[in-house]
Nucleic acid binder design. Structure first.
Lengths: 123, 123
DNA sequence: GCAAAAGTTGACGCGAACGTAAAGCAAAAC
DNA sequence: GTTTTGCTTTACGTTCGCGTCAACTTTTGC
């Protein structure tokens, strides 16, 4: 799959893909000079974009990707990856709890505002 | 409450508080030249920091704050605020759904990695 | 075979969200 | 009473995550 096809599939620009590659988040094969993306690359990109929506930095995401398909077989490296991942998991569970509360409150606020707006419009 | 007290309470720098003020996210009183923060300011700052953890921009957050305690009484303004807030709510619910799935998967990955690590250490 | 399209590597630019250093004022401590 | 402490504004600097040329090669269509 070419870079253009990837861009259309995931709604990103070529610049973005090359940038992620420069940060070692993806590493497509080369046919001559051109890049070729396979299933693994697509899976990684999907995770990258998801991680971004959760507010993680690209460096955080890079570490998570190590867990999802490891390149390093060093034992201490793996342990470090696990530890970093545990931290991300803690971030995510806390965020989930906060989200639940925040969503509930936001719904109520919107409801109030809607009623207030209706009152204003009538009288 | 002085700027320094705010900083300690919320673990931010004075620069950050002044920056948020310049973006009209908070507007503390003045005693002479000095800033004084009240309960309302603290509530707003709490929401700001929470919004940031959810990955919202300061501009997104500014619009949400309008909903939480409105300054504008203009009807069309209120309607716009409600609409923007609905969008944020949609973002948040989607993020919540994604988070649930992602947390589940990450837990499994960590579990796998831990078992793998144990195997390596033994053999 | 040759132009156009698609891809490549620099390199500089940019907005967001602050960091940081400089220079000054003002109340408070000694 | 002057030195320290705490806050102020002004302004330039920095990092992240790309956007945007520019200049070049490579592949593809006709």
């Amino acid at each position: 799959m070419t870079i253009r096809q990837m861009c259309e599939l995931f709604d990103v620009t070529p610049r973005t893909l090359r940038f992620y590659e420069s940060r070692e988040l993806i590493s497509p094969e080369r046919r001559g000079q051109h890049r070729l993306y396979n299933r693994r690359d697509r899976a990684r990109l999907k995770l990258i974009l998801q991680g971004k929506r959760f507010g993680f930095s690209l460096e955080d995401i890079r570490q998570l990707l190590e867990l999802y398909d490891p390149r390093e077989n060093n034992v201490t490296q793996i342990a470090a990856t696990i530890e970093a991942s545990r931290q991300r998991l803690a971030d995510m569970t806390r965020q989930q709890e906060e989200l639940t509360v925040a969503i509930d409150e936001l719904r109520q606020r919107i409801g109030n505002a809607e009623r207030m707006l209706e009152d204003r419009r009538r009288g």
